[in-house]
Amino acid sequence: MDSNPVAAQKKRSSLLDCIRALAVIMVVLYHIGLQAGSGLDPVATWFLQYGLLGVDIFFPLSGYLITSYLLTHHNKRDVGVFFMRRFFRIVPLYMAALAIYALGSIVTRTNLDTLHNLWQNAVFLTGWVIFHGDRAEVPYTITWSLSVEEFSYIILGLAALILRGRIGRILIAMTVGALALRFAINLAGFPNVYFYPPARLDSVALGGAVAWALHARCKILIPLLVTTVATWGLMQFGRVPFHTLLFLLITLMACLVIYIIVVYLPSMRTPLISAVAAIGFYSYFIYLFHYFNIVVLEVIQERFGMGLSFWPQSVLVLAMTYFQAWLSYRFFEGPLIGFGRRLETKLGPRPAPTSAEAY
């Protein structure tokens, strides 16, 4: 694994990374809008209202990529490689982000009342605790999405090992179970279902279903379109259907785009696409660290009497975080991921590479 970001990006699908770029930019602009408060133009207001749904675009893409790997790599050795790769891709940077959050809280004397609960984030329980407890007691709440992804990885990895080629059954169970649970929770009126990992598994599973359909050479464009329109229609039948199916609608739309890219535009690459894809390549870092830069920029503005509007703040935050992400991958993430790849040789001969392995 090359720690050179440019070399690493060439091994990936640029258009799929563009999906990641869109998702993370939506989240960043949402948080900047929260800080800005009032006085936003219509476009900025849209991001304030809907930007958080960018997280829901990440889930099906993750499901597609990891299922693509597991459908063809499901013996004991391969599943071990899967979990090892997930560990080196996710955990070191995540722990670094938690350490910086803790240090920042101590230095600035903010959020000290919840800092003792950071252990919950460290064991990927953020989403669980937000739902079952008090959200105000949870630090660094954006890490809730890692709770969903890690829970999904465990389920799909074990399913690939135990069920081997029948992973489709687990994908169906995850989708139906999550939708039923989300409907029941919304019907009962409990808050914070948005963050609850078991009620969000359908987003990852449906991305996995796209991978399964492509592996089985099924043409699913029309069924996806029909299901998307039907979901939108069912959302109009009241509050409970709307809140239950909104995330499903976003997932289905993302699955449509993924399917079209993989089937019809697999190798499309232009300078503009590559530039946007570079943001997607660093999306994990940007997601974890962008809010730190929002706070730093806010402190700088207060100290020097600056009053930057929404869009200049957005450009600055994205630029700062992108540069930090490049440094992190070049000198921290990339070398660690490469170290993990070298460890794979101890698990036995390496399997033939697939297009999903770069992720």
Rank of each mutant, 00 (worst) to 15 (best):
S314N: 10
Y322E: 08
P349T: 06
F82Q: 00
R342L: 13
A99P: 13
K346H: 15
G168W: 09
G168Q: 04
R217Q: 11
A23E: 03
F285C: 14
L221F: 10
A352V: 12
F304R: 13
L249S: 14
N75S: 12
W119P: 01
R77V: 08
Q35H: 10
V193R: 02
I286M: 12
P197F: 03
R164I: 14
T110F: 07
D202W: 00
I300G: 02
G334M: 10
A44G: 14
R341G: 10
M84S: 14
V299L: 11
L103D: 03
I172K: 08
F58T: 07
Y284S: 06
R342Y: 14
R200I: 09
L48N: 15
S38E: 13
E357M: 10
M174A: 10
D56V: 07
A44H: 07
G307R: 12
K10L: 14
L118Q: 09
A99W: 15
W232K: 06
Y284N: 09
M253P: 00
I66N: 04
V107K: 05
F82L: 01
T231W: 04
T231L: 05
Y359A: 11
L125I: 01
A319R: 11
G177P: 01
V107N: 07
A278C: 11
L71I: 07
V91Y: 15
T67N: 06
L327N: 07
H116A: 13
I130C: 02
T231C: 14
V123P: 01
G33F: 01
I273A: 09
